[in-house]
Design a protein around this nucleic acid. Structure first.
Lengths: 175, 175
DNA sequence: AATGAAAACAGAGATCC
DNA sequence: GGATCTCTGTTTTCATT
């Protein structure tokens, strides 16, 4: 039994206030040095490292990634493609999505409720590449009933750096 | 004049093969130590650090973030809300989106081509919070003409770790 | 589970090619 | 621009509570 599970009990793991502050800070800056992180949350660096490892182990921290401005690397075309599959293929939705994730230009796939079954977010170097992707990987697949391609002009991401917020504030937030 | 600008000329900065490999590796693992990164791309650590700093300076690297499994922190409800604003408010689309980004539950906003003007991706702790967000921040705003809320059941993100790929492979990719 | 000290390691900068 | 060297600070392990 890991440290986290011990703190949380057997069901869905729960995290204490310090874990959440660690997660919040690392979400804002994954490269924050461990000793500074420890100082921010008020524990010893060694303890802090152990908590971070436990959070990685538990899968709450899935990884760390640099946020690259891909539009400046020759990927001028971003798009969201909404896809509906035939009812008969609905049971293999996940397998289909996982196959799509292996296509280099695909960034993420979201299963949604509504008219469409999922959204595919892709980044392409040209409109030809976008067209080929939609034609060959989606429309051309017998499982696919309909697609709708929406070019993304610009994508703004919330940046919580420097904000003294927390997950708890988010949970309680209301307009 | 920075190193990058010198290499690239005055217009849109271009990056050499080493820069791109650095970006690719940091996108897969933002916490990779500088000396390991340097070894991977075959340059000295000091040179590598200078390149990384230049890429940050140039805004190609926007930041580093831990990828948190937010569904395990009490944010069970994720949704994509498609929004269309009135033609008269179209000129202040960016200002509207930037205001939305300051709302804690908002993760990102994408301007799209098509029937809707933008997509808002949000993570909420309850359906009440989702309803309040859509009612108070979107539908309640006089600029907003229409909204469509789609619950996200699951979101799968492409993981390029361990793949010996590159941005160049992506650019050339075709089905 | 948390800590503090010691050892191993990585980062920043000056200097030279 | 890139490499080498050195100094400084950070990460990690481990014995201890």
């Amino acid at each position: 039994m890991t440290a986290l599970e011990q703190r949380s009990g057997t069901g869905a793991p729960r995290f204490d206030a310090i874990d959440e502050r660690i997660l919040w800070l690392l979400a804002a800056d994954a490269r924050m040095p461990n000793n500074r992180l420890a100082a921010e949350v008020g524990i010893a660096p060694s303890t802090c490292l152990a908590r971070v490892r436990a959070l990685e182990e538990a899968g709450v921290i899935r990884g760390y990634s640099a946020d690259i401005d891909i539009s400046r690397l020759g990927f001028a075309i971003e798009a969201v493609v909404s896809v509906r599959v035939h009812a008969a293929a609905r049971h293999e939705l996940r397998a289909f999505a996982k196959r799509l994730l292996r296509v280099p230009v695909v960034r993420d796939v979201s299963f949604i409720a509504g008219e469409k079954d999922f959204l595919v977010h892709i980044a392409c170097s040209s409109t030809e590449q976008l067209r080929d992707f939609v034609a060959d990987e989606l429309s051309g697949d017998p499982s696919v009933a309909a697609t709708q391609t929406n070019i993304v002009f610009e994508r703004l991401v919330a940046d919580r750096r420097g904000q003294a917020a927390s997950f708890d504030e988010l949970r309680r937030w209301h307009a």
